[in-house]
Nucleic acid binder design. Structure first.
Lengths: 182, 182
DNA sequence: AATAAAATGTATCAAACTGATATATAAAAC
DNA sequence: GTTTTATATATCAGTTTGATACATTTTATT
Protein backbone atom coordinates (compact mmCIF):
# COMPACT_ATOMS: atom_id res chain seq x y z
CA UNK A 1 0.00 0.00 0.00
CA UNK A 2 2.17 2.80 -1.35
CA UNK A 3 1.62 6.33 -0.13
CA UNK A 4 0.74 8.20 -3.27
CA UNK A 5 -1.21 11.38 -3.50
CA UNK A 6 -0.63 14.24 -1.08
CA UNK A 7 -4.25 15.32 -1.30
CA UNK A 8 -5.32 11.98 0.22
CA UNK A 9 -3.12 12.62 3.23
CA UNK A 10 -4.16 16.24 3.67
CA UNK A 11 -7.83 15.34 3.71
CA UNK A 12 -7.23 12.43 6.09
CA UNK A 13 -5.23 14.82 8.27
CA UNK A 14 -8.15 17.22 8.47
CA UNK A 15 -10.57 14.36 9.11
CA UNK A 16 -8.30 13.14 11.93
CA UNK A 17 -9.20 16.34 13.79
CA UNK A 18 -12.95 16.34 13.14
CA UNK A 19 -15.70 15.08 10.85
CA UNK A 20 -16.14 17.35 7.85
CA UNK A 21 -18.05 17.89 4.62
CA UNK A 22 -16.25 18.53 1.34
CA UNK A 23 -17.21 22.16 1.57
CA UNK A 24 -15.78 22.47 5.07
CA UNK A 25 -12.54 20.81 3.92
CA UNK A 26 -12.22 23.43 1.22
CA UNK A 27 -12.75 26.13 3.86
CA UNK A 28 -9.95 24.71 6.02
CA UNK A 29 -7.70 24.76 2.96
CA UNK A 30 -8.53 28.40 2.34
CA UNK A 31 -7.95 29.47 5.95
CA UNK A 32 -5.77 27.32 8.24
CA UNK A 33 -3.72 25.71 5.47
CA UNK A 34 -3.66 28.42 2.86
CA UNK A 35 -0.19 29.73 3.75
CA UNK A 36 1.49 26.43 2.94
CA UNK A 37 -0.97 24.24 1.07
CA UNK A 38 -3.90 24.55 -1.29
CA UNK A 39 -6.53 22.37 -2.95
CA UNK A 40 -9.48 22.89 -5.26
CA UNK A 41 -12.95 21.33 -5.32
CA UNK A 42 -11.83 19.44 -8.38
CA UNK A 43 -9.43 17.46 -6.24
CA UNK A 44 -11.36 17.37 -2.96
CA UNK A 45 -14.63 15.76 -4.06
CA UNK A 46 -13.14 12.99 -6.20
CA UNK A 47 -10.60 12.26 -3.45
CA UNK A 48 -13.35 11.91 -0.85
CA UNK A 49 -15.02 9.27 -3.06
CA UNK A 50 -11.69 7.48 -3.45
CA UNK A 51 -11.03 7.53 0.30
CA UNK A 52 -14.39 5.87 0.92
CA UNK A 53 -13.70 3.27 -1.79
CA UNK A 54 -10.35 2.49 -0.20
CA UNK A 55 -11.90 2.23 3.26
CA UNK A 56 -9.99 5.19 4.71
CA UNK A 57 -13.13 7.23 5.31
CA UNK A 58 -16.85 6.65 5.67
CA UNK A 59 -19.64 8.98 4.69
CA UNK A 60 -22.94 9.56 6.33
CA UNK A 61 -25.90 11.62 5.44
CA UNK A 62 -25.94 14.89 7.36
CA UNK A 63 -29.52 15.88 6.55
CA UNK A 64 -30.27 16.19 10.29
CA UNK A 65 -31.78 19.63 10.32
CA UNK A 66 -31.96 21.01 6.86
CA UNK A 67 -29.37 20.77 4.13
CA UNK A 68 -28.46 17.69 2.13
CA UNK A 69 -24.84 17.48 3.08
CA UNK A 70 -22.43 14.55 3.26
CA UNK A 71 -20.28 14.27 6.36
CA UNK A 72 -17.04 12.26 6.19
CA UNK A 73 -15.25 10.54 9.08
CA UNK A 74 -11.84 8.90 9.16
CA UNK A 75 -11.68 5.11 9.77
CA UNK A 76 -9.05 3.18 11.71
CA UNK A 77 -7.47 2.15 8.40
CA UNK A 78 -7.43 5.79 7.35
CA UNK A 79 -5.76 6.83 10.59
CA UNK A 80 -3.15 4.14 10.17
CA UNK A 81 -2.49 5.23 6.57
CA UNK A 82 -2.13 8.84 7.75
CA UNK A 83 0.33 7.81 10.47
CA UNK A 84 2.43 5.93 7.89
CA UNK A 85 2.61 9.04 5.76
CA UNK A 86 3.47 11.26 8.72
CA UNK A 87 6.36 8.94 9.57
CA UNK A 88 8.21 9.30 6.27
CA UNK A 89 10.24 12.50 5.72
CA UNK A 90 8.75 15.34 3.69
CA UNK A 91 9.66 14.95 0.04
CA UNK A 92 9.11 18.38 -1.37
CA UNK A 93 9.06 21.92 -0.05
CA UNK A 94 8.39 24.20 -2.92
CA UNK A 95 8.06 27.92 -3.42
CA UNK A 96 6.45 29.39 -6.52
CA UNK A 97 6.64 33.16 -6.41
CA UNK A 98 5.58 35.02 -9.50
CA UNK A 99 6.97 38.20 -7.93
CA UNK A 100 10.48 36.73 -7.92
CA UNK A 101 10.04 35.52 -11.48
CA UNK A 102 9.13 39.01 -12.70
CA UNK A 103 12.04 40.42 -10.74
CA UNK A 104 14.45 37.89 -12.20
CA UNK A 105 13.59 39.17 -15.68
CA UNK A 106 13.55 42.74 -14.39
CA UNK A 107 16.27 43.97 -16.74
CA UNK A 108 13.80 43.77 -19.61
CA UNK A 109 11.40 46.15 -17.85
CA UNK A 110 13.64 48.42 -15.80
CA UNK A 111 14.21 49.56 -12.24
CA UNK A 112 10.95 51.47 -11.72
CA UNK A 113 8.84 48.46 -12.64
CA UNK A 114 10.90 46.22 -10.38
CA UNK A 115 10.34 48.60 -7.47
CA UNK A 116 6.63 48.61 -8.23
CA UNK A 117 6.49 44.81 -8.03
CA UNK A 118 8.27 44.90 -4.68
CA UNK A 119 5.82 47.54 -3.41
CA UNK A 120 2.85 45.36 -4.33
CA UNK A 121 4.45 42.37 -2.66
CA UNK A 122 5.28 44.37 0.47
CA UNK A 123 1.69 45.54 0.90
CA UNK A 124 0.31 42.05 0.51
CA UNK A 125 2.79 40.62 3.02
CA UNK A 126 2.10 43.37 5.55
CA UNK A 127 -1.61 42.52 5.48
CA UNK A 128 -1.03 38.79 5.75
CA UNK A 129 1.48 39.27 8.57
CA UNK A 130 -1.09 41.25 10.57
CA UNK A 131 -3.52 38.37 9.99
CA UNK A 132 -1.03 35.77 11.16
CA UNK A 133 -0.14 37.72 14.30
CA UNK A 134 -3.84 37.80 15.12
CA UNK A 135 -4.18 34.07 14.63
CA UNK A 136 -1.09 33.39 16.77
CA UNK A 137 -2.57 35.41 19.65
CA UNK A 138 -5.80 33.45 19.55
CA UNK A 139 -3.92 30.15 19.40
CA UNK A 140 -1.63 30.96 22.31
CA UNK A 141 -4.71 31.52 24.48
CA UNK A 142 -6.38 28.16 23.92
CA UNK A 143 -3.26 26.05 23.51
CA UNK A 144 -4.02 24.27 26.79
CA UNK A 145 -7.51 23.27 25.69
CA UNK A 146 -6.63 21.73 22.35
CA UNK A 147 -3.41 19.76 21.85
CA UNK A 148 -3.59 20.13 18.06
CA UNK A 149 -3.30 23.91 18.38
CA UNK A 150 0.32 23.58 19.50
CA UNK A 151 1.25 22.24 16.06
CA UNK A 152 -0.99 24.70 14.32
CA UNK A 153 0.83 27.54 16.17
CA UNK A 154 4.18 26.20 14.97
CA UNK A 155 3.18 26.68 11.35
CA UNK A 156 1.81 30.15 12.07
CA UNK A 157 5.08 31.14 13.71
CA UNK A 158 6.89 29.90 10.63
CA UNK A 159 4.79 32.29 8.61
CA UNK A 160 5.40 35.22 10.94
CA UNK A 161 9.17 34.68 10.94
CA UNK A 162 9.44 34.40 7.18
CA UNK A 163 7.07 37.29 6.46
CA UNK A 164 9.18 39.55 8.67
CA UNK A 165 12.24 38.46 6.69
CA UNK A 166 10.36 39.22 3.46
CA UNK A 167 9.63 42.76 4.66
CA UNK A 168 13.29 43.34 5.55
CA UNK A 169 14.24 42.12 2.08
CA UNK A 170 11.72 44.46 0.46
CA UNK A 171 13.35 47.46 2.12
CA UNK A 172 16.89 46.41 1.23
CA UNK A 173 15.98 45.44 -2.33
CA UNK A 174 14.28 48.77 -2.97
CA UNK A 175 17.24 50.65 -1.44
CA UNK A 176 19.61 48.74 -3.72
CA UNK A 177 17.55 49.43 -6.82
CA UNK A 178 17.10 53.12 -5.94
CA UNK A 179 20.74 53.82 -5.33
CA UNK A 180 21.55 52.33 -8.73
CA UNK A 181 19.50 55.11 -10.30
CA UNK A 182 21.73 57.95 -9.04
CA UNK B 1 -3.83 38.93 -26.98
CA UNK B 2 -4.43 37.81 -23.41
CA UNK B 3 -1.51 36.80 -21.22
CA UNK B 4 -2.26 33.25 -20.32
CA UNK B 5 0.21 30.62 -19.31
CA UNK B 6 3.09 31.40 -16.98
CA UNK B 7 5.33 28.86 -18.66
CA UNK B 8 5.16 30.88 -21.90
CA UNK B 9 6.46 33.95 -20.08
CA UNK B 10 9.19 32.09 -18.18
CA UNK B 11 10.59 30.58 -21.37
CA UNK B 12 10.40 33.92 -23.19
CA UNK B 13 12.15 35.49 -20.20
CA UNK B 14 15.00 33.02 -20.46
CA UNK B 15 15.16 33.49 -24.24
CA UNK B 16 15.33 37.26 -23.72
CA UNK B 17 18.72 36.71 -22.09
CA UNK B 18 20.17 34.26 -24.62
CA UNK B 19 19.32 31.69 -27.29
CA UNK B 20 18.66 28.28 -25.79
CA UNK B 21 17.67 24.69 -26.54
CA UNK B 22 14.84 22.98 -24.67
CA UNK B 23 17.37 21.04 -22.67
CA UNK B 24 19.23 24.21 -21.68
CA UNK B 25 15.96 25.82 -20.62
CA UNK B 26 15.30 22.88 -18.34
CA UNK B 27 18.79 23.31 -16.88
CA UNK B 28 18.14 26.99 -16.12
CA UNK B 29 14.94 25.93 -14.37
CA UNK B 30 16.83 23.44 -12.26
CA UNK B 31 19.60 25.87 -11.26
CA UNK B 32 18.94 29.64 -11.46
CA UNK B 33 15.16 29.45 -11.09
CA UNK B 34 14.78 26.38 -8.93
CA UNK B 35 14.31 28.28 -5.65
CA UNK B 36 11.19 30.05 -6.86
CA UNK B 37 9.99 28.36 -10.04
CA UNK B 38 10.00 24.95 -11.70
CA UNK B 39 9.03 23.33 -14.99
CA UNK B 40 9.17 19.88 -16.51
CA UNK B 41 10.08 18.69 -20.00
CA UNK B 42 6.44 17.88 -20.48
CA UNK B 43 5.64 21.59 -20.38
CA UNK B 44 8.82 22.98 -21.95
CA UNK B 45 8.88 21.17 -25.31
CA UNK B 46 5.20 21.64 -26.18
CA UNK B 47 5.43 25.30 -25.11
CA UNK B 48 8.42 25.89 -27.39
CA UNK B 49 6.38 24.59 -30.33
CA UNK B 50 3.48 26.86 -29.33
CA UNK B 51 5.74 29.90 -29.06
CA UNK B 52 7.01 29.31 -32.59
CA UNK B 53 3.44 28.87 -33.87
CA UNK B 54 2.44 32.15 -32.21
CA UNK B 55 5.46 33.93 -33.67
CA UNK B 56 7.03 34.68 -30.26
CA UNK B 57 10.10 32.55 -30.96
CA UNK B 58 11.92 31.11 -33.95
CA UNK B 59 13.84 27.89 -34.09
CA UNK B 60 16.96 27.09 -36.03
CA UNK B 61 18.90 23.94 -36.52
CA UNK B 62 21.91 23.83 -34.25
CA UNK B 63 23.66 20.92 -35.93
CA UNK B 64 26.74 23.10 -36.50
CA UNK B 65 29.29 20.76 -35.04
CA UNK B 66 27.73 17.57 -33.92
CA UNK B 67 24.47 17.03 -32.13
CA UNK B 68 21.03 17.47 -33.67
CA UNK B 69 19.79 20.18 -31.40
CA UNK B 70 17.18 22.90 -31.91
CA UNK B 71 18.09 26.40 -30.77
CA UNK B 72 15.31 28.87 -30.01
CA UNK B 73 15.49 32.68 -30.20
CA UNK B 74 12.97 35.28 -29.07
CA UNK B 75 11.34 37.47 -31.74
CA UNK B 76 10.37 41.15 -31.46
CA UNK B 77 6.74 40.02 -30.95
CA UNK B 78 7.90 37.69 -28.22
CA UNK B 79 9.84 40.43 -26.48
CA UNK B 80 6.83 42.71 -26.63
CA UNK B 81 4.59 39.97 -25.17
CA UNK B 82 7.11 39.42 -22.39
CA UNK B 83 7.19 43.14 -21.59
CA UNK B 84 3.39 43.22 -21.40
CA UNK B 85 3.44 40.40 -18.92
CA UNK B 86 6.20 42.00 -16.84
CA UNK B 87 4.12 45.17 -16.61
CA UNK B 88 1.11 43.57 -14.91
CA UNK B 89 1.38 42.83 -11.15
CA UNK B 90 2.24 39.31 -9.99
CA UNK B 91 -0.94 37.32 -9.47
CA UNK B 92 0.17 34.48 -7.29
CA UNK B 93 2.95 33.85 -4.81
CA UNK B 94 2.52 30.40 -3.44
CA UNK B 95 4.31 28.23 -0.92
CA UNK B 96 3.78 24.48 -0.81
CA UNK B 97 5.75 23.00 2.06
CA UNK B 98 5.14 19.37 2.86
CA UNK B 99 7.19 19.82 6.04
CA UNK B 100 4.65 22.34 7.38
CA UNK B 101 1.81 20.04 6.38
CA UNK B 102 3.27 17.15 8.36
CA UNK B 103 3.89 19.47 11.28
CA UNK B 104 0.34 20.78 11.16
CA UNK B 105 -0.94 17.24 11.69
CA UNK B 106 1.84 16.59 14.19
CA UNK B 107 -0.50 15.76 17.06
CA UNK B 108 -1.31 12.46 15.37
CA UNK B 109 2.34 11.41 15.36
CA UNK B 110 3.80 13.08 18.44
CA UNK B 111 6.56 15.45 19.48
CA UNK B 112 9.56 13.28 18.57
CA UNK B 113 8.41 12.85 15.00
CA UNK B 114 7.74 16.56 14.68
CA UNK B 115 11.28 17.32 15.86
CA UNK B 116 12.63 14.82 13.36
CA UNK B 117 10.84 16.57 10.49
CA UNK B 118 12.28 19.90 11.60
CA UNK B 119 15.78 18.38 11.77
CA UNK B 120 15.51 17.11 8.20
CA UNK B 121 14.25 20.48 7.04
CA UNK B 122 17.03 22.31 8.90
CA UNK B 123 19.77 20.22 7.28
CA UNK B 124 18.36 20.75 3.79
CA UNK B 125 18.05 24.51 4.32
CA UNK B 126 21.60 24.77 5.71
CA UNK B 127 22.96 23.15 2.56
CA UNK B 128 20.90 25.29 0.24
CA UNK B 129 21.82 28.44 2.16
CA UNK B 130 25.53 27.68 1.71
CA UNK B 131 24.83 27.26 -2.01
CA UNK B 132 23.01 30.56 -2.26
CA UNK B 133 25.74 32.43 -0.40
CA UNK B 134 28.23 31.06 -2.92
CA UNK B 135 26.07 32.16 -5.83
CA UNK B 136 25.63 35.64 -4.33
CA UNK B 137 29.42 36.07 -4.02
CA UNK B 138 29.93 35.15 -7.67
CA UNK B 139 27.15 37.49 -8.76
CA UNK B 140 28.43 40.46 -6.77
CA UNK B 141 31.76 40.16 -8.60
CA UNK B 142 30.45 40.37 -12.15
CA UNK B 143 27.47 42.62 -11.52
CA UNK B 144 29.19 45.41 -13.49
CA UNK B 145 29.67 43.20 -16.56
CA UNK B 146 26.13 41.93 -16.90
CA UNK B 147 23.14 44.14 -16.07
CA UNK B 148 20.81 41.14 -15.74
CA UNK B 149 22.85 39.85 -12.80
CA UNK B 150 21.64 42.72 -10.63
CA UNK B 151 18.11 41.30 -10.78
CA UNK B 152 19.34 37.77 -10.41
CA UNK B 153 21.16 38.80 -7.23
CA UNK B 154 17.97 40.30 -5.85
CA UNK B 155 16.23 36.93 -5.98
CA UNK B 156 19.25 35.18 -4.43
CA UNK B 157 19.24 37.67 -1.56
CA UNK B 158 15.57 36.94 -1.05
CA UNK B 159 16.50 33.29 -0.64
CA UNK B 160 19.34 34.02 1.78
CA UNK B 161 17.15 36.25 3.96
CA UNK B 162 14.30 33.78 4.15
CA UNK B 163 16.51 30.74 4.67
CA UNK B 164 18.16 32.45 7.64
CA UNK B 165 14.70 33.10 9.03
CA UNK B 166 13.82 29.43 8.48
CA UNK B 167 16.87 28.36 10.48
CA UNK B 168 15.94 30.67 13.36
CA UNK B 169 12.45 29.20 13.31
CA UNK B 170 13.85 25.64 13.38
CA UNK B 171 15.73 26.39 16.59
CA UNK B 172 12.78 28.07 18.29
CA UNK B 173 10.31 25.43 17.16
CA UNK B 174 12.47 22.60 18.46
CA UNK B 175 13.02 24.43 21.75
CA UNK B 176 9.27 24.87 22.12
CA UNK B 177 8.54 21.23 21.38
CA UNK B 178 11.31 20.00 23.69
CA UNK B 179 10.27 22.04 26.67
CA UNK B 180 6.75 20.65 26.34
CA UNK B 181 8.16 17.20 27.04
CA UNK B 182 9.42 17.99 30.54
C1' DA C 1 42.28 1.35 -26.06
C1' DA C 2 38.13 -0.48 -24.45
C1' DT C 3 34.42 0.01 -21.69
C1' DA C 4 31.35 2.08 -18.38
C1' DA C 5 29.11 6.02 -16.76
C1' DA C 6 27.43 10.60 -17.02
C1' DA C 7 25.79 14.39 -19.67
C1' DT C 8 23.32 16.23 -23.63
C1' DG C 9 19.35 16.33 -26.34
C1' DT C 10 14.26 15.66 -27.98
C1' DA C 11 9.92 13.88 -26.99
C1' DT C 12 5.65 11.79 -25.06
C1' DC C 13 2.02 10.15 -21.66
C1' DA C 14 -0.85 8.86 -17.77
C1' DA C 15 -2.08 10.81 -13.77
C1' DA C 16 -2.80 14.86 -10.93
C1' DC C 17 -4.51 19.31 -10.15
C1' DT C 18 -6.36 24.03 -10.93
C1' DG C 19 -9.69 27.46 -11.94
C1' DA C 20 -13.85 28.12 -13.52
C1' DT C 21 -18.29 27.12 -13.69
C1' DA C 22 -23.11 24.98 -12.97
C1' DT C 23 -26.71 24.08 -9.84
C1' DA C 24 -29.50 24.51 -5.76
C1' DT C 25 -30.87 25.84 -1.11
C1' DA C 26 -30.65 28.59 3.24
C1' DA C 27 -29.40 32.47 5.88
C1' DA C 28 -28.42 37.30 6.32
C1' DA C 29 -28.63 41.93 4.92
C1' DC C 30 -30.85 45.71 2.90
C1' DG D 1 -39.78 41.37 0.21
C1' DT D 2 -35.92 41.03 -2.32
C1' DT D 3 -31.06 40.90 -3.17
C1' DT D 4 -26.82 39.18 -1.63
C1' DT D 5 -23.88 36.11 0.66
C1' DA D 6 -22.88 31.56 2.52
C1' DT D 7 -23.47 26.66 2.31
C1' DA D 8 -23.15 22.54 -0.33
C1' DT D 9 -22.02 19.07 -4.20
C1' DA D 10 -20.16 18.28 -8.54
C1' DT D 11 -17.83 18.35 -13.09
C1' DC D 12 -14.53 19.60 -16.88
C1' DA D 13 -11.24 21.64 -20.10
C1' DG D 14 -6.89 22.92 -19.86
C1' DT D 15 -2.36 22.89 -17.47
C1' DT D 16 1.45 20.65 -15.39
C1' DT D 17 4.18 17.02 -13.29
C1' DG D 18 6.99 12.98 -12.93
C1' DA D 19 8.46 9.33 -15.20
C1' DT D 20 10.12 7.30 -18.92
C1' DA D 21 11.92 6.16 -23.76
C1' DC D 22 15.31 6.86 -26.96
C1' DA D 23 19.78 8.24 -29.06
C1' DT D 24 24.22 10.33 -29.11
C1' DT D 25 28.43 12.32 -27.10
C1' DT D 26 31.61 13.28 -23.71
C1' DT D 27 34.06 12.08 -19.63
C1' DA D 28 35.83 8.73 -16.34
C1' DT D 29 37.44 4.26 -15.16
C1' DT D 30 39.86 0.07 -15.87
Amino acid sequence: MAIEKKIDCVILGLLSHEDLTGYEIKKRMDTSLKYFWGASYGSIYPTLSDLVKQGFAVKRDGAENNRNKIIYSITEEGRSYLKDWLRIPAEKDELRYETLLKLFFGNEAGVLQAISHIDTFEEKIEKELADLIGVADVLRNDIETDETHKYYLLTVEFGIKTYRAYLEWCKEAKAMLSEERE
